[in-house]
Amino acid sequence: MVKGMKRKTYSKVVELRSRKIRKKRRILLPLTVLFLCLAVLCILECARDDIYIAKESTVKEIISSEAVIVKNERVINAPAEGKIELMVKAGERVRVNAPLFKVVADVDKKQLLEREMDELKRKLENIKKAGNDLKLQNEAAIEMIEKSIKLQEKKLQEVESTIFSPMAGVISFNVDGYEYLLVPEKVSSLDYEDIENIKATGSEQTFQEIVKTNQAVMKIVDSLTLEVVAKWDGPNLKIGEKYTIRFPEHDLEIKTRLRELSETKKTAVFSVQEVPFELLDKRKSRVEIVVRTHNGIGVPVSALVDDKGQEGVLLFFDGKLIFKPVKVIAKDDKNAIVEGVKLGDRVVVKRGLIWSLLRRI
C-alpha cells in the first residue's frame, strides 16, 4: 500500500515537470526567433550604410586661415562730463543726424528747469483758451510767456547736450580700441604678423551711465561694406575674382571679391557688400576661403583604398568585392570627386561591415 502511494506520487511529479518544460519551450522558441530576426535586421541596417551609390556631388577646395574684419566705424565721445540718457539701442540702424544720446551735466537743475517749463506751457495753453474779452491782455501775456519758455530752453541746453549721428549705420556699444587701427585706409599696411597680434574681442554691448569729457559712449558701424584681411601663403588667387568665405563659428557664408593680394605681406584683402549682422562686432575669426568648386561623380573619402600604390575603390558586385582604380580630382573631409566610377556603382565604404566580411573572400 505504501509502495503504491509512492508510485502514484512519483508519476504526478514527472507529469508536472513535463508540462513546465513544454511551457518554457513555447515561450523560448518565439523569443529566440524574434531575437534572430532583430539581429538580422540590425546586420542588414548596418550593411546598408556600408554601400554607397555613386552619384553627382560637389567638393569645394578651401583655404583655412585667420582673418581680421575691417569696417568703417565712427566712435562717438561725450562732449562733457555728466549722465548719459540714451535715445537709441544696440543693433539699431540710424540715419545721418539722428539723435543718439544726451549728456546731462546737472540732473537736479535739469529737472527743475523742466518743471518750470511745464508750468509755463500750461499757463500759455490756459491763456490761449480764454475768451476774446481779454484779447489785448492775453496777447501781451502770451508774448511774455513765450519769451520765458525760450529762455528756459536756452538754460536747459546749457545743462544737457544732445549728440547727433554723423553717419548712417548700426549702433554698437562694443568699443574695443581697434577702431583707429583697423580702418579701410590702413588695410594695405597690415601684414601676416599684424593679423596674428590682433586679439579677438567679445561682442558684449555695455556702456557707462556716468561719463567724463571725451569718453567713448558708443560707435556707429557702416553696415554696407567691410573688408576681410586673411593670412595667405598658398594656392593662387586672382585679384578681381569672386570668392565665398565661410565663418564656421557663425555657420555663415558671404560673397566677396578679392581686392588686393600681397606676396610680401602674405595677406589677401576681400571686399564685402552688405555686412551680415553677425560680423558687426567681430574683429578676428577663423575663416575658410572657397578657392574652387568641383562637380562630378562623388564617393565618400572613407571608400578610397590603396592597392599597391594605386588609389581606387571597392565595388560590390555579385556578392564580391572588385577593386576599381580611380583618379581623385578633389576631396574634402567627407567626399571626393573621382574619375573611373559610373553613376549608380555600388561602392563599399572602407572599414564597413561588408568590407570587413568580404575582403577575406
Rank of each mutant, 00 (worst) to 15 (best):
K212V: 07
E209S: 09
T162F: 01
F164S: 13
Q152P: 01
M218V: 05
E227Q: 12
I171N: 08
E209D: 03
K150A: 11
G177S: 08
A168V: 06
S165L: 06
I220V: 09
D118F: 13
K155D: 10
Q205R: 09
I149R: 00
D191W: 12
E146I: 04
E116D: 05
S172I: 01
S165P: 07
Q157K: 15
D222I: 10
T201D: 04
Q208N: 15
K212A: 03
A168R: 10
S161L: 11
E158N: 12
A168S: 15
Y180D: 12
S223N: 13
E185K: 07
Q205W: 04
D176V: 12
P166G: 10
V217F: 12
A140S: 11
Q157E: 15
V228N: 00
D118A: 15
I142A: 06
V211K: 02
N197H: 05
A141T: 03
K155W: 04
Q137F: 14
K219V: 02
K128D: 05
G202W: 05
T213L: 12
E204R: 15
K128Y: 10
T213V: 13
E143C: 07
F164H: 14
L120E: 13
S223L: 00
K199T: 10
L224R: 14
L181V: 11
N174K: 09
E196R: 10
N197Y: 09
V159H: 09
L151N: 13
E196I: 05
K199R: 13
K219L: 07
E146M: 13
E119W: 07
L156Y: 01
M218I: 07
D118V: 08
P184L: 03
V228L: 10
V187K: 11
E114K: 10
V159N: 05
R122S: 12
Q137G: 15
I171M: 09
K128L: 13
E227S: 15
